[in-house]
């Protein structure tokens, strides 16, 4: 099986007051292993919802989601949490680091949840922080790091335990263009060197340019899907 993500006829509607707002409308999408895919579209087009559905953070009203061969609708919440822990990495727009933990501890935390012994956690955390260009900043708390550095820690946390896929929700939205470009270079390198699949939601032109495949959404439907 070559596809890491398989979505079939996904529908998702949100209730806003008494009105149903369709967020995702009959979307089918497959993403290959090792892909560097951007899901683009204006605000409200459904890209974050789609990313959340792929990540198992949100459930579709109908349709089937498969990630790395696991069919979500058959999984218990506990098994879904395990899947997220071992197979999916997340990078959020607002970094979402744990403020009381240092950079290294933030990276370590996912491995702690996975039950990896402390020594190995520490070695891996330092190694991945070196890879993302944060050597010597292991003990800095998030408040002591710039936005770009925090997002690098978030990327390090997402990829440290070799997930099958990393989902990044507008990762460059809070960064200036230079820092954003640096981050994209980093993720591209990780994608090439570590064969990690990246899926972004974005409306940033730069991210779209970096993507190997660009899926465009409008009003909850795919209207364009191009591979470069």
């Amino acid at each position: 099986m070559n596809n890491i993500v398989e979505l079939e006829k996904i529908k998702k509607t949100y209730l806003q007051g008494k009105v149903d707002i369709p967020a995702i409308n009959n979307v089918s999408l497959s993403i290959k292993k090792g892909g560097f895919v951007a899901i683009a579209g204006p605000s409200g087009s459904g890209k974050t919802t789609l990313l959340n559905i792929i990540g198992g953070l949100d459930q579709p009203d109908s349709g089937t989601v498969r990630v790395d061969g696991e069919k979500f609708e058959t999984l218990t919440p506990s098994r879904l949490a395990e899947l997220r822990l071992f197979k999916i990495g997340f990078v959020f727009q607002a970094y979402n680091l744990i403020p009381v933990l240092s950079a290294a501890e933030n990276v370590e935390f996912v491995m702690l949840l996975q039950g990896i012994p402390k020594k190995e956690r520490l070695r891996k955390a330092h190694a991945i922080l070196d890879d993302v260009g944060l050597s010597g900043k292991y003990n800095r708390r998030p408040a002591e790091l710039s936005g770009g550095q925090q997002q690098r820690v978030a990327v390090a946390r997402a990829i440290v335990s070799n997930p099958s896929i990393v989902l990044a929700d507008e990762p460059t939205a809070n960064l200036d263009s230079k820092t954003g470009q640096g981050l994209l270079e980093l993720m591209k390198t990780m994608n090439k060197e570590k064969k990690v699949t990246f899926v972004f939601s974005t409306h940033d032109k730069m991210v779209m340019d970096y993507a190997g495949r660009l899926v465009r959404l409008r009003d909850g439907s795919i209207f364009d899907d191009q591979s470069k």
């Binding site: 990540g55 953070l57 506990s78 949490a81 395990e82 899947l83 997220r84 822990l85 071992f86 999916i88 997340f90 959020f92 979402n96 744990i98 403020p99 935390f109 996912v110 949840l113 946390r157």
Partner: peptide, 16 residues
């Protein structure tokens, strides 16, 4: 609350 959401997103189980 946001942090707890993050922890759950990362795969932390409710019991943890």
């Amino acid at each position: 609350m946001r942090e707890f959401g993050l922890l759950k997103a990362l795969g932390m189980k409710p019991v943890s």
